[in-house]
């Protein structure tokens, strides 16, 4: 009797350490943030002293002009940045998918930007964008053009942070697309050549469709990441001029540190979290569906053998 009980409990005992870690590391902070978002909480107070305000933080956010602005800045930034990065990254992969001497060295060189700390990337670009001593304006001047208000004008600043982010993250998409491209079955490409497909046609009709699963995952990963972008923009523009480059992560950080409204910051975080959760779920379900389809096809094929 006792033995069977012990046997039944064994799996749970093995699961327990992982469950505890999960509880402490994930559920507790998450619950904390959710709880905090219902409080009017100043950093000088302990959490127990903060006033419970229910959904007021969320309701206020929806009428908060600045929050809405930063929400749309984030969406605009993410959509533009990820589209550009996908286009350039995949394009580069197609261009560099060949066996030339020194290719592996070149590939390593290409992924360097990804390895640099975002703070350093921000600083680097800030110096390059500098109105008088930056390399861009000096080059423009030397060539006889007007200098540009890189970080000084709202639209230019927005474009500038896009350029910096694209510079840093194209390699990520490049490296994943290249990997996808190089695992495509060689004979299928040859069959397409025999069938009369030109280079463009084989990219359009064969390579891109076959790379699609990888590209979709890459796209979603980048999208989720771009919604959380903070450091580079913090260093480059700190959200300015005005609110032109104030993305949500930056808004959250400022709300917590400058405006000292931890409850509001928590509410913003949760909205961002919900958005990302939806994207992640989309990715998860996409994976599930493709996996299921592959499995079904396999078993069907096996039955008919």
């Amino acid at each position: 009797m006792n033995r069977t009980l012990a046997n039944r409990l064994t799996p749970y005992m093995f699961l327990a350490p992982a469950a505890v870690i999960l509880l402490v590391a994930l559920i507790y902070p998450l619950g904390y943030v959710v709880y905090a978002s219902f409080l009017n909480w100043n950093p000088s107070q302990r959490i127990g002293q903060a006033e419970f305000v229910g959904l007021r933080n969320y309701i206020n956010l929806f009428s908060d002009e600045s929050f809405r602005e930063s929400f749309f800045v984030t969406i605009r930034f993410s959509v533009i940045v990820v589209s550009l990065e996908m286009f350039i990254g995949v394009g580069l992969a197609f261009l560099l998918d060949r066996n030339i001497r020194g290719m592996s060295a070149l590939r390593t060189l290409f992924i360097l930007p990804m390895m640099i700390s975002p703070i350093v990337v921000g600083l680097m670009w800030r110096y390059m964008y500098h109105p008088t001593v930056g390399v861009f304006n000096r080059t423009l001047k030397a060539l006889g053009f007007e200098s540009m208000p890189w970080l000084l004008d709202g639209d230019w600043a927005f474009a500038s942070i896009i350029i910096a982010d694209v510079w840093q993250w194209v390699p990520f998409i490049f490296i994943l697309s290249l990997a996808a491209l190089q695992t495509l079955p060689q004979s299928v490409m040859e069959a397409a050549r025999i069938d009369g497909a030109s280079g463009w046609q084989s990219i359009l009709y064969i390579k891109l469709p076959l790379m699609m699963p990888v590209l979709i995952i890459t796209f979603l990963l980048r999208l989720i990441d771009s919604f959380k972008v903070l450091e580079v923009i913090l260093v480059l523009t700190n959200g300015g001029p005005g609110l032109s480059t104030e993305v949500m992560a930056l808004r959250i950080s400022r709300t917590a540190t400058e405006f000292r409204e931890l409850g509001v910051a928590a509410a913003m975080s949760n909205i961002l979290l919900l958005l990302l959760l939806m994207l992640t779920l989309a990715m998860f379900f996409y994976n599930k569906i493709t996996e299921k389809r592959a499995l079904r096809q396999k078993s069907e094929a096996a039955e008919e053998m």
Binding site: P185, S187, V188, E190, A191, A192, R193, I194, D195, G196, A197, I206, P209, L210, M212
Partner: peptide, 20 residues
């Protein structure tokens, strides 16, 4: 000449069907 200009058809060892 390119393969497509040679008036040939080919069957591959691994069939090389377009999986999609």
């Amino acid at each position: 000449l390119e393969p497509k200009e040679r008036d040939i058809a080919m069957v591959f060892q691994d069939y090389a069907l377009y999986p999609h």
